[in-house]
Design a protein around this nucleic acid. Sequence first.
DNA 1: TCTTGTCCGGTTTTT
DNA 2: CCGGACAAGA
Length: 810
Amino acid sequence: MFSDAVSSSPLLQNLNPEQLAAVTLPATHALILAGAGSGKTRVLTTRIAWLLQNGYVSPGGILAVTFTNKAAKEMLTRLSSMLPINVRGMWIGTFHGLCNRFLRAHYKLANLPSTFQILDTQDQLSAIKRLCKQFGIDDERFPPKDLMRFIAGCKEDGLRAKDVPAHDENSRKKVEIYDLYEQQCQREGVVDFGELMLRSYELLRDNAPIREHYQRRFRHILIDEFQDTNKLQYAWIKMLAGQGADAMESMPGGSVVAVGDDDQSIYAFRGARVGNMADFVREFNVTHQIKLERNYRSFGNILDSANALISHNTQRLGKNLSTEAGPGEPVRVYESASDFAEAQWFVDEVRQLVRDGTERKEIALLYRSNAQSRVMESALFNASIPYRVYGGLRFFERAEIKHALAYLRLLDNPHDDTSFMRVVNFPPRGIGARTIEQLQDISNASGCSLHDGVSAVPGKAGANLGAFVAKLDVMREQTAGCTLREIIELVLKHSGLEEHYKTDKDGQDRLENLAELVNAAEAFVSQEGFGRDAVALPVDELGVNLSQSPASQGLDMSAAVLDKPSPEQLAPDLETGETLSPLVAFLTHAALESGDNQAQAGQDAVQLMTVHSSKGLEFDCVFITGLEDGIFPHENALNDAGGIEEERRLMYVAITRARKRLYLSHSQTRMLHGQTRYNLKSRFFDELPESALKWITPRNRGFASGLGSGSGNWSGASNSGSGGARGDWAGSGFHSKSGNAERFASPPVPAQKSAPSHGLKSGMKVFHAKFGEGKVQMLEGTGDDARAQINFTRHGVKWLALSVAKLTVI
DNA sequence: TCTTGTCCGGTTTTT
DNA sequence: CCGGACAAGA
């Protein structure tokens, strides 16, 4: 179908046959099942470059969507290195970034003020709290966090309050609050993340000229990480592709290419629907499906482990990764006696790896939940090994930055009550809870913003408030016509933020961050041309630099011809080129890109992160720790099959991060919520191929203890052992190399032939040194793995590993 | 009004 | 254990 001239293009060199097929797909709808490490991003960007280079589409005719800013940025960078084109005007970005751009261009039709601001999760929560207070909602029955989840969930499903089915009193109330929240946001001129998507969708749905314009325009739609799309995002794509229920046409000559991996779907908890992949195939009549199963990342043993594990999932599209790299090293498995011992082992291994020439940044430590990082961090810290923890507070989420941004927002929109509340008494200026309550009552009664209610507050309180508002007004006047940098510097000074942190004894870091905010703004203005990114470009600028791509070699140009928008084809004001003020653009940027969390990004440091945040990354050496039932898989997922399958996919993601060497570890005991827990090793170990594994812990560790001795009395490694290990830790760090582990190692015990006879039966009453009296509810496993679920009178239900726990039958 | 102590609760995360 | 959230003193 394609000429030699095309396939010999330098763009297409070194692609394997499947990748090449994906890159050069004809203009139809297609699903690309791209396994981990199969070169997915490369395929996506190469396809875009290929389409452009051959003139099948102009830059303006492409819509490429990703989930994270990082992925979007990478796509743009790679693209500009492949082709000499100006990527600025191209619609490549995150769902939310693109929706923002769309709404900025059509703010009037979307019924938004031109300066609408975006609420991040923090802002949204405080907006909901404020609302609950105003309407006297019982926050025991309706915790604001739950309400936020509920509202976000509704929006992810594309539901307005009126569309949400409510059968009982409870859900009716929640829907009512959702509705009130919407009204509040509208009044204040703010939108949350979900609203960006939902409102874009509704505008496309309800406005035919707009819809048809964009449907004509985007000939090639590409979506990355399709398995993570939610219901609304899928509906949005359908709408743009003319597959909506009332669509006139179904983008003839156009194409939607969805790239995803159902095995890496790990975001169901936030509304992602893997089912979108199957729906896409059905609803778009997808005829071209390509599987990318050749893995260029990991050695065989690692891939075999991943394949074997994921084969235990039932709901799969089916895919098996293969490599030509050879088996490589075995997957190393380690069992420790405590989380402290695990950390010590990790530190020792890291030291060894570094000695052998591994770069620290090529070593990643993955864990299921953030709480697990602490013990690891301490161990690394004590060993003076540089490390970097991902996750946590990001730049634009820091309190001092949020304060500064709140002042800036109030300059543009004094009715932004969320921002008003945040800084009305920060730095402290004698406006207390009582005064604010008064103001809220007045504003609520007259249905105005807090800002407008100020004048009606009597007495000294009113005077204080008045002074605050006057200060804002002065700042607004003084900053008129200033550059972004000048505006921010002036606000930092006049708001008193700078002064406040100067006198605060540990305000140095915060001052530095505020200085960094000025830098960020400066960088934003110069690099981004302040927010041309955030607004739609005029239509006639869309074909920029197309002339620089080589003309197509006598190929079918119909796609390109179709795409080229002729000015008369479009209503003149469908897309506005209206420029946003630098300040609004910067505030938008701050909300949509919360900024990197760590300044020390470039350093050669060991990388610590949750499995979730490791998605999309790869490392030479990967440690997956805390592989215990209840930790990974997480206990909240143990009770339903779907939950276990998602945990298994999570494990699959974790394993496939490793290039050369993979370590798995679990611990017999672990401190959690200030208590020592006894965990069994993760059930996922049973799903890995024994031939790919190598246990580097002597397997006779732990022991069957005196079980079945008839006395009904047996001992495990003593409970106080963990206390001892902790003492060691707190006192002298990790000096004793294997000391902790040895402490737990049990004395040799004659093999117990009659393994299961630990003498316990459900219903028995037992005594535990720490938990007191309890009743055996359930028993599982044999020998080392035997465990009992015990309902303790004073401490509730617990699972105890019988090889460790000290129990007496009473 | 602002600071200090007690209580509670506690996955995963991006936008 | 550890942070956030609220209730009592300066």
